[in-house]
Design a protein around this nucleic acid. Structure first.
Lengths: 210, 210
DNA sequence: TTGTTTTTGTGCGATACAGTACAGAAATCC
DNA sequence: GGATTTCTGTACTGTATCGCACAAAAACAA
């Protein structure tokens, strides 16, 4: 269960026949399609290529496996988010890129999975407080990233960076829900594009430079 | 399975010992706490007060029972929404009431269930297209109600009523998600209150009368 | 009262599922 | 090379779950 980060020196016994991050990535597709409760360990094992006892030995029970997957997914998402937000362009352009990228992921065939946090973790929240805690951490990290980007921009301080981040996050979550329910990518992109100036207002007219 | 709407004349055999709408209401609490997949028929039967064969006879299998419950929930929600939107007050005040009412429901103890559509139906969407279809119908009905209210208001036509409705809906869904993940009612209300003027902008200053 | 219809509730069967034991395999350490 | 450690994969156990069969009960019809 120790998080074997790539550079473990080769630790005593028989080596693993799998790469943990790859397993989490494959398992993620099952969790995102079916959700936590409906995903069976047989499906998870089949998708990951290894069998149940190896899964248990490596990650623990289903909840722990789900949490590891969620953390992995969340870390990659925050990474991608920050890569865009720290990149070039006005704040409007970067926020637009964030939404475009998210929508492409959320509406990816074949399952249009939406966001793992909003689409599958939220439902377990009342029954699985540990899942809820991780989901909250991740949403907080997402909004922190957004907040930092707004704070570093030259937008007026009137709606605070935190308030803008809340709003931008809310729009992101709503998009994730609608994607999972089957909304067309083009519609979501049009909606997102219409929301970017509102979030960054520069109220009525053309956006200000950032 | 015929939707015995209150005024069935007394139809031949042994009468039912339950009121279908009451059963749906009790079953709803279980579905909203656990979600569709994790709710077992034993729990559903126990909560409803009747036993499994009676549930099957009355509503069909678990998916059909869930869909009946979702429709019932959705109809009541849209009803409540329209009652507020058709009531007195400016459009800002009415929208504020909508959010306040929704947040009270979403954060109700003991489970902080959020919205049944966003919080439990969405996750089943890839695996259960019939559930997804109903969920989409209901979200469309909600946004239609909002759109009508915006169209009937004296807000500028510049962001179209449909665009405002999409935005208002998105905020509502985001609130539902955050409620299910444990956000405090007060925080959600503050967020909602901050969003109302944005949705209705009358942009910067005081709201216009409606 | 006798027959008919519908609901109730106990109980059953078959399956699926989560989690584990155990023997064999593949590597390192000495 | 032998001992040790760790992983793999088959097989297993107990439980939970869904969905239904069937007899008893409660109403109406004649």
């Amino acid at each position: 269960m120790r998080t074997s980060t790539e550079l473990t020196k080769r630790s005593r016994g028989r080596p693993r026949a799998f790469i943990p991050s790859q397993v989490l990535d494959r398992v993620r597709t099952v969790f995102m399609e079916k959700g936590f409760a409906a995903a069976s360990l047989d499906e998870l094992a089949a998708a990951s290529g290894l069998n149940r006892p190896s899964l248990y030995a490596a990650f623990g029970d289903k909840e722990q496996l789900y949490i590891a997957t969620l953390r992995f997914y969340g870390a990659r998402s925050v990474e991608g988010l920050e890569a865009i937000l720290n990149g070039p362009g006005t704040i409007e352009q970067r926020l637009g890129k964030v939404y475009k990228g998210a929508i492409d992921l959320y509406t990816a065939p074949p399952h249009r999975p939406g966001c793992m946090i909003v689409g599958t973790a939220a439902v377990e929240s009342p029954s699985h407080p540990r899942i809820a805690a991780v989901a909250n951490e991740l949403l907080a990290a997402i909004e922190k990233s957004l907040e930092r980007a707004f704070a570093a921009s030259d937008l007026p301080r009137k709606p605070s960076p935190a308030a803008r981040a809340h709003m931008a996050g809310a729009i992101l979550y709503a998009i994730a829900i609608r994607a999972r329910l089957g909304a067309k990518a083009a519609d979501l992109k049009a909606f997102a594009a219409s929301m970017v100036p509102t979030i960054c207002h520069a109220d009525r007219g053309r956006p200000a430079r950032s």
